[in-house]
């Protein structure tokens, strides 16, 4: 995440008193516009990350409340990844619209989630519930960290039934988990993560380095699913160099730290002088290899 303070409401272009529905609509509209698969502009990906991060927080009533109260420090004092959040609570049929974005229940068959969304949030109502009431499939949304850790979780259905579910560590997007005793299959859906992205089976994260660190080499901290690790950036690393952290991905896959060289926006006098000196001395021409 960028170090600077990001106003999540501004990122989504909604007022501070926006309803969940407004927030969802704004996110969907912006996501359609800036999704890197749709928009090839170089800046689109960063914008999309910004939008996703904002939505991730504002759609969750707990996180939103904290954010409203604490601003950019909303994360402090709380290990968000380990807190059982709304994702464990399922609700079937038409629930109260407030805050149940995370909750998606899908009935067997090739149904689309969006249909159910409409069922939940108005629009066409529970048409689908008449179809094959048994053999439910529900979507369990998980953070990447929770998926990596796995473990036992309590799942509450809308009708009040509760189940203990064992989530296998390293569970994948789309993987099914059967609920013992319940006629229910949980389909894992991994939330987009603000720091990690998938590349095939492996994970990638950006590691920001200063130009001199990239040139001279450095040891830097890289976020991992279980906290962080120190990684040696070899001298002479250009942007895009992929440093492998073996086994640090999801379920034993690898994590790659991708070098991203960041230049200070403003140089001090001394820095400018040193860069000037370097520019005058160096014979390096990146455009001629």
């Amino acid at each position: 995440m960028a170090v600077g303070y990001q106003d999540y409401y501004e990122a989504l272009g909604v007022p501070r008193d926006a309803s969940n529905e407004d927030i969802r609509r704004a996110y969907r509209r912006l996501a359609r516009e800036y999704h890197p698969d749709v928009n090839k502009d170089p800046g689109a990906e960063d914008r999309f990350k910004e939008i996703s991060e904002a939505y991730e927080v504002l759609r969750d009533p707990d996180k939103r409340e904290r954010y409203d109260r604490l601003g950019s420090n909303w994360r402090s004092g709380q290990d968000v990844s380990g807190t059982p959040g709304f994702e464990e609570y399922f609700r079937q049929g038409r629930g109260a619209p407030g805050g149940f974005e995370d909750v998606r229940v899908e009935f067997d068959g090739d149904g689309d989630f969006s249909d159910l969304f409409e069922g939940l949030f108005g629009g066409r109502g529970g048409r689908r519930s008449a179809r094959r009431a048994a053999n439910h499939e529900a979507v369990l949304e998980l953070d990447l960290e929770a998926a990596a850790r796995g473990g036992r979780r309590r799942v509450t259905l809308g009708d009040g039934r509760e189940f203990e579910v064992d989530i296998p560590p390293g569970v994948r997007d789309g993987q099914a988990i059967s609920v013992p005793g319940g006629n229910l299959l949980l389909r894992v859906q991994l939330r987009p993560h603000r720091r990690f992205r998938f590349r095939g089976d492996d994970l990638e994260t950006d590691v920001e380095v200063a130009p001199w660190e990239a040139a001279l080499g450095a040891e830097v901290r890289v976020p991992t699913l279980d906290g962080g690790a120190r990684v040696k950036v070899p001298a002479g690393s250009s942007c895009g160099r992929r440093l492998r952290l073996r086994g640090a991905g999801l379920g034993g896959s690898d994590l790659y730290a991708v070098v991203k060289i960041v230049v200070p926006k403003k140089l001090s006098k001394k820095e400018r002088e040193l860069f000037r000196q370097l520019a005058d001395t160096s014979t390096f021409d990146p455009r001629r290899s």
């Binding site: 969802r24 969907r28 996501a31 359609r32 999704h35 698969d37 749709v38 999309f48 996703s52 090739d110 149904g111 689309d112 989630f113 969006s114 249909d115 969304f117 997007d173 789309g174 859906q189 991994l190 987009p192 998938f198 095939g200």
Partner: peptide, 28 residues
């Protein structure tokens, strides 16, 4: 594989259904 991954991303990020994601992919 790349197309499948794209469809999965679109579905996950844009809140569209499976067939919507397929259509979006094909249009893209």
């Amino acid at each position: 594989g790349a197309q499948l991954a794209q469809a999965a991303r679109l579905r996950r990020d844009l809140g569209i259904g499976y067939s919507g994601a397929v259509l979006a992919c094909q249009l893209l």
